[in-house]
Each structure stands twice: as C-alpha cells, then as structure tokens.
Amino acid sequence: MEQIIREKIKQVKKGDQAAYSEIVDFYQHRIFQHCYRMLGNIHEAEDIAQEAFIRAYVNMDSFDESKKFSTWLYRIATNLTIDRIRKRKPDYFLDAEIKGSEGLNMYSQLSSSEPLPSEEVESIELQRYIHKEISELPPKYRSIMILRYLEEFSLQEISGILDIPLGTVKTRIHRGREALRKRLRHV
C-alpha cells in the first residue's frame, strides 16, 4: 500500500487531481478519527479533517517524498486541531456539559447503524467517559496520548509527527499517563 500511495503522490505532484481521491480514501478514517479524538466533536472533526486533506493537497510540492506521507498528514491534522482548540471561544467551555451530551448523541447515532454485541453496549458508557477524560487533557498531552495509545505510533514516529524532540515526547507521555491515571483510577 505504501508503494501505491507513493505512486499516487507522484501523480498528484504532476498535477493529476483525481489521483488524490485514492489517497483521501485510504487515510480518511484514520485522520477523521484522530481529529474526532482531539476535538471531541463530530462536526468539528469532519471540518478539520477535510481541511487537513486540502492543506496537504495544496502543499504537496513541499512534501519530502523520502519521508512517510502518513506522518506528514498527521502533523497537518494535529496542528489544525490544536489551532481550532485555541481559537474556540471561552464560552465554548462553559457549554462543555451540553457539548458532551451532543457528542453522546452523535455517537449513539453512529453506533446504532451497526449492531453491537451486548458486552460492547455495556462498555459504551465507559468508553464515553474515557473519551471525555482524554479530551480534557491539555492539547499537547492529548495529541501524544492519542497518537501513542489509540493510533499506536512509536515514540520516534510521534516525535516526527509533532516535530518535537524524542525526549520531550517521553516527558509529555509520562505526564499524560500520570494525569489520566489520576482521572481514571476510580473507574
């Protein structure tokens, strides 16, 4: 797949727009999910994920083909989500409760489309709680925890995605783990 993507990127660089749709197809769920985990809101996630793909397309010429495209794409998406979080109006946070329940409704709508085993239905409540706890971490810890444990990147890869030194990644992941440990210890 990596090879196919490389080929497609070459075509896009030559100006073939249609080749880009296969790249979007391939990464859409991962990037959308990443944005959703960062933002905690389906609408914002869709908006930012689309924006990330558009930015990647527009700046394709500056993409270094010797590097992994996914790393680059995640970096664009992560930076956009962090920008969005910063730009949120303060009153957005006052509505956190309502925002949370909105998220829940969105989620129940999503999950209703496919039948779930009963065990999973029971754990949905827990999943929501965990998601909420993650999304309340400061963005710089949140992104690392999501990339490490939900998207399963190595620390080295995370350092590449966020463009920060490996040591900083480690420090943040330690703090992120401790913060979440405190929040989730009573679950």
Partner: peptide, 11 residues
C-alpha cells in the same frame, strides 16, 4: 482503558 476508547469512521 485508553485503548478501549470508541472508534469512529469518516462519513
């Protein structure tokens, strides 16, 4: 626990 977090798919 973090890893058991929900997953979503793009529309």
């Amino acid at each position: 626990l973090i890893q058991s977090s929900e997953s979503v798919r793009a529309p």
